[in-house]
Amino acid sequence: MNKIMILTVVLAFSLFAQSYKVEKVQGNVKALIGNSEQWVDVKEGTMVSSSTVLLTNKNALIMLSGRGIKFTLKPSAALSVNSLKRMTIDELLLALAMEEILSTPAKRSSDKTMNTAIYGTDESGNKTAVLPANTLGDLKLNGARQLADNGYKETAILAAKETYRKYPTTQKNAVTRLFFAEQMMNLSLYGEAFTEYTEIQNLQLNDTQTKEVQTKIELLKKKLSGM
């Protein structure tokens, strides 16, 4: 019995150490906890763990505190609580390299395609979705921007890149991509920024954006060549 109590205390402390207190909730704020498939309402005074994703609707916001910080997620945004952490440039570079390792499998001898054609009606549907996937992606990018605006540039970049991969339509959002490419430059991640601007160059851009991208690419070329 004593052992169980000790374990419970340690677990609670551990959870508490990685959790934030919900100081304020305004409007409709939802949370997706751990591996759950259900979005649930968030109430003031409760604790949210780092494995939680928070989502604010239009005109909604949530204020968190804990681990020495206070953070407010503004309206129309989604954010993984796990992103509320400081990261060094080295850790960011490692994380970016890791994403590359994960997303690019070693070449297989032949890629398999579906070997059986299936005919029938799609009845799987998305019956429990709170938001269309595209919308959730845009909200996550908003959340990432808010992270950056609050000084969490490293985790903001990671969150943005993950969003691009999991919600491919967000890759076409030139404004957001330019914003995060700028963040990379600010962190002196010239190689990563150069790759990003090169990809942005292929999007549909207005004249101002095109000029900005070209300027940045030229600047990064000089920096990368050591001039």
Partner: peptide
Amino acid sequence: QNDKKYYIRK
């Protein structure tokens, strides 16, 4: 509905 439960690979 939970994007933490999968990973994207090329």
